[in-house]
Design a protein around this nucleic acid. Structure first.
Lengths: 154, 154
DNA sequence: ATTAAAATGGTGGAGTTCCAACAATTATGA
DNA sequence: TCATAATTGTTGGAACTCCACCATTTTAAT
């Protein structure tokens, strides 16, 4: 109960107005989450974007790249790179879309299905660590509040 | 009250397990926030990282680059680039640290002080848009919940 | 039916970030 | 003390993402 001593040898700094900014708090959380995600899935060389793409393609076989871009808020040119990566790994395939000759229909390969089945429990573990200090109500409120930030995002 | 019609011509897709993942929700919110931030401050060519750096240097004159890296969860090499950018714009200065010859002491220039004074109201406007659909209790709970995600982040 | 506008996948270039390695300096331990 | 550890700023290389632009194709408007 003595003074504000710290064992840390690092300077304790003044964060100014940053802690009051939602943008700052979301960014800091996102950095920490990304770090834990990639560390936990390092054996599979997987990022949140690649994983999210696999999930969306599984749930929507034949999904078009532009739909993927909108769903993940990525540029269409970024999706080109993402699908290239997954295709080179043999996890997805580009097929010609029958209803629109501009589009590619993206589907999971069998290998993609297998990998995704392996990844899901690892992501569940990662998520459990994220929320380990939150009770169910806090979790629900967090998701609800995040969803109200720019609800018209596209 | 008819069926689930939509005026959108875009495919409504199945997001699978993504909406239940905190990591996904934080990422999507962060993308939307970053987009609004940079659009709102486009005249000043300012990013959240550059702004956060200016705020921390103002609040902690003579801050060392390594402390900045820890505070913003950036790699030390990234901070080199960030300070280079701000120094080239004449907003900060590197000085030799008197107590540790390995370190640089970073300070704001007068121009940096002036710019930061101009930026703060713009960031306040941006923040107001972020939280416009949240009441005070939701805001507080959001910040508290985000702070409980990897509270030992460094 | 024809023309104008919008959407799609893709390329090239740029910005931001990380990691691995390095020399210089400081801190720690035997 | 003195040898070893750790820390600091920096560089070079890579990964991820965006923007501007393009040709092809589809949609909308006249």
């Amino acid at each position: 109960m003595a003074g504000p001593e710290r064992n840390s040898r690092h300077a304790r700094i003044d964060y100014g107005l940053l802690p009051g900014l939602i943008g700052y708090q979301v960014r800091q959380a996102q950095i920490a989450i990304f770090r834990d995600f990639t560390a936990n899935l390092a054996d599979h060389d997987m990022t949140p974007t690649l994983f999210g793409t696999l999930v969306l393609v599984e749930a929507n076989p034949g999904l078009k790249q532009a739909d993927l871009a909108r769903a993940l808020q990525l540029d269409r040119s970024t999706v080109v790179t993402v699908i290239d990566t997954l295709e080179h790994r043999g996890l997805v395939e580009r097929k010609r879309a029958v209803d629109d000759r501009r589009s590619n229909a993206v589907t999971l390969t069998n290998a993609g299905e297998r990998i995704l089945t392996m990844l899901k429990p690892l992501v569940t573990d990662h998520e459990a660590r994220l929320v380990k200090d939150l009770d169910a109500g806090e979790r629900t409120a967090l998701v609800a509040a995040l969803g109200k930030i720019f609800p018209d995002r596209r």
